[in-house]
Amino acid sequence: MNSLTLINILLTIIIYMGARKLAHRFPSPFTIPILTTTIIMICIFHFSGISYDAYTPAKEWITALLGPATVALAVPLYKNKDIIKQKLMPAIVGLIIGTLSSIVSAVWLSRAFHLSENIQAASAVKAVTTPVAIETVQIIGGDPTLAAALVVASGLFGAIFGPALLTMMNISEPFSRGLSIGTVSHAIGTSQIMGEGPIQGGVSSVAMGAAAIITPVILSVLYQFL
């Protein structure tokens, strides 16, 4: 690891820690740490002249930690295992429908706007966490870098607008809110919905993990017919 990579990693961590403090002091969907950090990092790169290629080694180190971070979400899963067992069958049905809807709608919209096949493939995996999306998109011939960007965009959109949309639709039951966010907004949405309570966070963690498992299976069959 060279000095520039180390500096970029430390800079990202410091900015993220500051963004967490900002979100705690001014709680809002628009102050979620990953959104604030992303905006600040883009501004720093733009005004300092640091290219994305120069930041790539740091990005790869940070991305490598997403796997262990995803596994760590098993903790809220274990703590809420009883309620998850009680509602297992409705959760499975909702998860499958949500995952199918996310994949089909993304691909159909891409085709409706005559976007390239590369974008169509990347959009199909936007609802799963980054490590899974990067591996899965290669199965259907997409670009891993583009897929990662769409994953982040999807997660940010879900984290910012998801809880508000659920509230507008009078969906207040904690289990349902957690399941919805985790299915379509992966880790970013899960980190946001955890602020509502342990049930929402635990169920969202389960939904995120389950979606990551079934998405490659669904895509390997469904994508041939879309």
Rank of each mutant, 00 (worst) to 15 (best):
M17A: 11
M17D: 11
M17C: 12
G18S: 02
G18I: 06
A19V: 08
A19Y: 03
R20Y: 10
R20F: 07
A23V: 08
H24M: 11
H24V: 08
F26Q: 15
F26I: 14
S28I: 07
P29Q: 12
F30S: 03
T31E: 12
I32G: 08
I32M: 07
L35T: 06
T36K: 09
T38K: 04
I39K: 03
I39S: 00
M41I: 15
M41L: 14
M41C: 13
M41W: 01
I42D: 01
C43R: 10
C43S: 14
I44S: 00
F45V: 08
H46M: 09
F47N: 01
G49A: 09
I50N: 07
S51L: 01
S51F: 04
Y52P: 03
D53W: 05
D53P: 12
Y55A: 00
Y55E: 01
T56R: 10
P57H: 00
A58P: 14
E60Y: 02
W61K: 14
I62Q: 01
I62V: 02
L65W: 10
L65F: 13
L66C: 01
L66H: 02
G67L: 07
G67K: 03
P68W: 05
P68Q: 05
A69K: 06
A69R: 03
A69P: 08
A69T: 12
T70L: 02
V71K: 05
L73G: 00
A74H: 05
A74V: 13
V75D: 07
V75G: 04
P76L: 02
Y78Q: 14
Y78I: 15
Y78T: 15
N80W: 02
K81W: 13
K81D: 06
K81S: 14
K81Q: 12
